[in-house]
Design a protein around this nucleic acid. Structure first.
Lengths: 133, 133
DNA sequence: CGGGATCCGTCGCGATACTG
DNA sequence: CAGTATCGCGACGGATCCCG
C-alpha cells in the first residue's frame, strides 16, 4: 500500500530475513502452515527416533485422531518431509520415516521441544500473572 | 466425557516409552499451540528486530487482520513472550517488544526462518512431484 | 492393520463498523 | 492510532462406518 513513495527498494534496511520476511511472509506462510500446523511438529519429532508404523505413531500422539494423523502424514509426504513405505503383507504394514529433508528439521524440532520443556513453567506462571492482573 | 466406566484416569498413567520426546506431548501441545499458531512465529521474528508499534507491526505482516494481530499479541503477552507498553500520549502509542523469555525464542525462530528459506524450493518441487505422481 | 469417505459440530479467522 | 464488538462463512477436526 505505502511502498510507492520511493524507487529505492527497502532491502537495504533489512539485514536479516527474520525482521522483514522476504516476500512479505507469503511464501513463508505456505511452508510454515505445514510445519507449524497442529500435529506436524509432534509427528516429525517422534519420527526422528526412527521409522514407525501408523499405529505406533498413533499411540504416541495422544490427542490425534486417525483422520488428522492421516492428513498430517499426507501433507508431510507431499512436502517431501516424510516417506511412506507400503509392504504388501498380511496383515498390511505401512512405515513412515523422515526423508533427508525431514532429517534437516530435526535440530529445529528438538530445539523447539527443548525450549518448551525448559520454559513451560515460566509460561504457566506468566499466564497466572496475566489472568490475575 | 467417556471416562465413566473405569476408576483409572488413563490420561495420567500412560508412561509412553517415548524415544524422542521428553514428555507425552500434552504439556508440549499447550505451549506449541501458542508458538505454532498462524501468526506468532512471524510476529516474534519481526519483533526480534526491536520494539514496534501496533501499526508498524501490522504493516510488516501484510496478511494479518488487525483482529488476529491483536489476538496474537494478547496471547503472546499472556504467555510472557511479548510485553506491551502503553504511552498515554496524543496520539496514543503502544509499543510491543520481546521479553527475555521471548528473546530466548529468537534463535529458534530465526533457525526456522532460515530453514524455510533454504528449503522452500525443495518443498515446492516435492509438491509438484507428489501432485504429478 | 491402514486409511478412505462421509456427516457434522465447532471456531478460527476475515470483514466491517464503532470507540477512546 | 490502537484497539473492541459483532456477524458470518469456511476450514478444521472428531466420530463413525466401511473397504482393501
Amino acid at each position: 500500500m505505502y511502498a510507492k513513495h520511493t524507487a529505492d527498494p527497502d532491502q537495504a534496511t533489512t539485514p536479516h530475513p527474520c525482521e522483514s520476511w522476504p516476500d512479505d511472509g507469503r511464501s513463508f506462510r505456505e511452508t510454515l502452515d505445514r510445519i507449524g500446523d497442529k500435529w506436524s511438529v509432534l509427528v516429525i519429532g517422534i519420527l526422528s527416533g526412527g521409522p514407525l508404523r501408523f499405529c505406533a505413531l498413533h499411540r504416541r500422539v495422544p490427542g490425534v485422531s486417525q483422520r488428522m494423523l492421516t492428513l498430517t502424514l499426507r501433507h508431510l509426504e507431499r512436502d517431501g518431509v516424510v516417506s511412506r513405505a507400503v509392504y504388501a503383507e498380511v496383515p498390511p504394514r505401512v512405515e513412515y520415516q523422515l526423508t533427508p529433508l525431514g532429517e534437516s528439521l530435526r535440530a529445529i524440532v528438538h530445539a523447539l521441544a527443548q525450549w518448551v520443556t525448559d520454559h513451560h513453567g515460566e509460561i504457566e506462571s506468566a499466564r497466572d500473572r496475566y489472568d490475575a492482573g
